[in-house]
Design a protein around this nucleic acid. Structure first.
Length: 798
RNA sequence: GCGCGCAUAGCUCAGUUGGUUAGAGCGUCACAUUGACAUUGUGAAGGUCCCUGGUUCGAGUCCAGGUGCGCGCACCA
């Protein structure tokens, strides 16, 4: 075989190797000789942490080597709000127009153009990482097939009474111009002035005076002694926009410790107040509109935005001498949109919701709720979460889940499959538009302009990508998927909703195991963000160090659920290792004619016995660790074996003992397989360079299992200890390489050193073994229990 | 307020049922260059495993309490 270059240059091989893999057809499990349970993973929608597919590929490649039908189905989601925002910003920058200037169809055209290019960028990144996905099965959430699944589920849930339309208070982002689900709202602590306002005889407190224009109900705690005389009473109070008839109501939601213990309520703009209003039948009056401005109900303040209104209303209050005091130190939790950071307003709106607590029929006799199904899937252990602690977090979140608002007022996404009769206002839900209104026979029906929450379609991902609602062979073979691997940051958005929706749609779990990785941080431990510009560009890293190095730096030293730092020096370190592996094989090739050897050859020397036994042990460990999701430990053990046992010791011995063709062939054959799931490129390259094209691809060889190994023998360990002790002696006495150390064995309970002195001398110790009687004045060196030497060097002898 | 995580060498981190002398990588110091590899080799230094108490023959690991940092959820008048 031709001699390998001195250093491994990934750039020279990666693209070509990936093409070879793709052309082989083995990414598609239909083309594999398979045995046992299939193994499948759905690629999660790529996001900021989209480069983290190293672990998924590791699992897929491992199980493929184990002979399973390994399917890794790739795809992308449309990320509705996020994508629309990006395109809106781009267009605004380009020609100052907004989406309404373009109109719906034209705007969507622009979004689709953007998506096409962004999908291809993502695809290139995934491929560059070496991901062995089956591109023939690639899916996109807006594909017709997946869209059909979306409509199908929507219609079924509607008929089961689990999707309903209702006017409820929702989270509203007036910048994005849409509703948000509860968990799409983030909270940020902020110092806000807290106003104590005179409201007739009672002082109330608020952080948001602009919503208080029409407040006319005061809530106090039933046990609050200060207000006992007022409960149930009504009186006229001078207020922001003239006199108001105020009523005092007692309810335990009022905390006596907060402010004055008395508050007025604004049912239209607070979730808690809204509930109270429903409980007591108070009127619900909108003060803030969907445009973020005060409505006509706000009288002379109408048309002002929230900020302006606050100033104007405070002015008015001050003029009327209704401000008692202002607490400037108040800490307020501001709610903001997770996509654009704008403050979110709670306001009443008519929307589509998924009812999570509503009982429905499951089978003939069984009644249950979506929430119960989703909780049970994890609590019964049908779905295992790694690390386990997230099962508790999942459970807690699920138990507190409220009805899920699924309609969005943005344009990019799946249109709600519902049509409204313009004549009678009746709604019809179905796969297609009804020709006439079933109620009034009118023919002017219009589809709801709203689209569905992006997570609605993503929640169907594991089965919609396999062809559901058709009963496909893929669905039967690969669902439930084996593992879902993703960042813990989308546990609620995505994982939880997949469980919920799959339980509903299929009566089954979407995946057996959820592996949650940590989030990538920069060298200082900061979250990657666009504004900081500290994001890692995977392509740049791959160009610089190779995909294998990048993969290792994300696998070794990381544990599930814990964030980890990614930075140049770390990747460079693994690049060094990859080069080491390259040179191990390069050396082996220079030493011997290597062939594929599957069965451990006979051990002829102590070193042979040792390396075969160590190798069998590490192979077994790697297998166990991969199967128990301890990828870091698997990689670390293999790294240690490869560098510090095989390279540092065995190859050095091989130079002295020679005649290692069979053993080296065997070790290289098996070692490349073990490394392949971690570092697919360099191992595939070495396999091809060493064994030739005729040997086939490494990616479909068979994983070494249950390797027979020679019994443990401490022999070589003793040689090793003797060598280390002698090298240490040299450094300790500051002896240059020109000084020769003389040694004699004074104690050797294993009785082996004598016959291996050539090895001790050969392993760069620069020593001469002498009979005991010639070294009476040397230094005693205890190598280990039962093994002692007497050592001296030239200077002492003279 | 409720819950969760983290704290181990100068730095970044492993350490799954409790078990010899607690590990790795990077960095540091000394030495080595006709070597498969300087993307290298040899050797060394470096630890109160956050603190206090407990269980145990034995605790980095288990229990209780505390400190510091981070996160999630809730509240948000």
């Amino acid at each position: 075989m031709p001699e390998l270059p001195k250093a491994y240059l990934p750039q020279n091989y990666e693209t070509q190797i990936y093409r070879q893999w793709e052309q082989s057809g083995f990414f598609n499990p239909d083309n594999l000789l398979k045995k046992g349970e299939p193994f499948s993973i759905s690629l999660p929608p790529p996001n900021a942490t989209g480069i983290l597919h190293a672990i998924q590929d590791l699992m897929i490649r491992y199980w493929r080597l184990r002979g399973r039908a390994a399917l890794w189905l790739p795809g992308e989601d449309h990320a509705a709000i996020a994508t629309q925002n990006v395109v809106e910003k781009k267009l605004h920058k380009k020609d100052g127009k907004n989406r309404y200037d373009y109109g719906r169809d034209e705007f969507i055209k622009r979004v689709n153009e953007f998506i096409a290019s962004s999908r291809s960028t993502i695809r290139d990144q995934i491929k560059a990482m070496g991901a062995s996905c089956d591109w023939s099965r690639e899916r996109y959430t807006l594909d017709e097939g997946l869209s059909r699944a979306v409509r199908e589920v929507f219609v079924r849930m509607y008929h089961d009474g689990l999707i309903y339309r209702g006017k409820r208070i929702v989270n509203w982002c007036y910048r994005c111009g849409t509703t948000l689900a509860d968990d799409e709202v983030e909270y940020k602590e902020q110092k806000t002035p807290f106003y104590y306002l005179k409201y007739g005889p009672i002082t109330i407190s608020t952080a948001r005076p602009e919503t208080k224009v029409l407040d006319k109900v005061i809530i106090v705690h039933p046990d609050d002694k200060r207000y006992q005389g007022y409960i149930g009473k009504s009186f006229d109070v001078p207020w922001i926009d003239g006199m108001v008839k105020a009523t005092v109501v007692a309810d335990k939601v009022a905390e006596m410790e907060t402010g004055t213990g008395a508050m007025t309520i604004t049912p239209a703009h607070s979730f808690v107040d809204f509930e109270l209003a429903q409980k007591y039948g108070f009127e619900i009056v909108d003060i803030i509109g969907p445009d973020g401005k005060l409505t006509a109900n706000a009288g002379k303040f109408a048309g002002l935005n929230v900020k302006e209104a606050r100033i104007a209303i405070l002015d008015e209050l001050k003029k009327k001498d209704l401000v008692e005091k202002i607490d400037e130190e108040y800490i307020h939790n501001l709610s903001i949109c997770y996509r654009c950071g704008t403050p979110v307003e709670p306001l009443p709106s008519e929307q589509w919701f998924v009812a999570v607590d509503k009982p429905f029929k499951r089978g003939l006799f069984h009644r249950t709720t979506l929430k119960k199904l989703a909780i049970a899937a994890v609590s019964t252990g049908k779905i295992k979460i790694v690390p386990e602690r997230f099962a508790k977090i999942y459970d807690h979140w699920m138990k507190n889940l409220h009805d899920w608002c699924i309609s969005r007022q943005i344009w990019f996404g799946h249109r709600v499959p519902a049509w409204k009769c313009i004549s009678c206002g009746e709604w019809f839900v179905g796969q297609a538009k009804p020709s006439t209104c079933l109620k009034c026979k009118a023919s002017n029906l219009e589809q709801d302009p709203d689209t569905l929450d992006t997570w609605f379609s993503s929640s169907l991902w594991t089965f919609s990508t396999l062809g559901w609602p058709d009963k496909t062979k893929d669905l039967a073979t690969y669902h439930p998927t084996s593992v879902m691997e993703t960042g813990y940051d989308i546990l609620f958005f995505w994982i939880a909703r997949m469980v919920l929706m799959t339980q509903y749609s299929l009566g089954d779990i979407p995946f057996r195991t959820v592996y949650l990785h940590g989030l990538v941080r920069d060298k200082q431990g900061r979250k990657m963000s666009k504004s900081l510009g500290n994001g890692i560009d995977p392509i740049a890293m791959i160009d610089k160090y190779g995909a294998d190095a990048l993969r290792l730096s994300m696998i070794i030293g990381t544990t599930p659920g814990n964030d980890f730092r990614l930075y140049d020096e770390k990747i460079a370190g693994y690049r060094n290792f990859v080069n080491k592996l390259w040179n191990i094989v390069r050396f082996a090739n220079l030493t011997a004619e290597l062939k594929i050897v599957e069965i451990p050859p006979e051990a002829k020397t102590l070193a042979d016995k040792w390396i075969l036994s160590r190798f069998a042990r590490v192979a077994d460990l790697v297998t166990k660790k991969i199967e128990s999701y301890s990828f870091s430990e698997a990689g670390e053990a293999l790294y240690d074996f490869t560098w510090h046992e095989l390279a540092d010791w065995y190859l050095e011995v091989a130079k002295i003992e020679g005649n290692k063709q069979k053993i080296l062939s065997y070790l290289i054959t098996q070692l490349l397989k073990l490394w392949h799931p971690f570092t697919p490129y360099v191992t595939e390259t070495l396999w091809r360079e060493t064994f030739g094209e005729a040997a086939g691809l490494l990616m479909v060889q068979s994983w070494p299992e249950k390797l027979p190994a020679p019994a443990d023998d401490p022999g070589f360990e003793i040689i090793r200890d003797v060598v280390t002790a002698l090298r240490g002696f040299r450094v300790e006495h500051k002896l240059g390489p020109d000084k020769v150390i003389n040694f004699a064995v004074t104690k050797d309970k294993y009785r082996i050193i004598e016959s291996y002195t050539h090895l001790v001398q050969g392993l760069r110790t620069t020593t001469i073994a002498k009979p005991i009687n010639q070294l009476s004045n040397g230094e005693r060196l205890v190598v280990r229990e039962g093994v002692e030497l007497i050592v001296s060097f030239d200077k002492l002898d003279k």
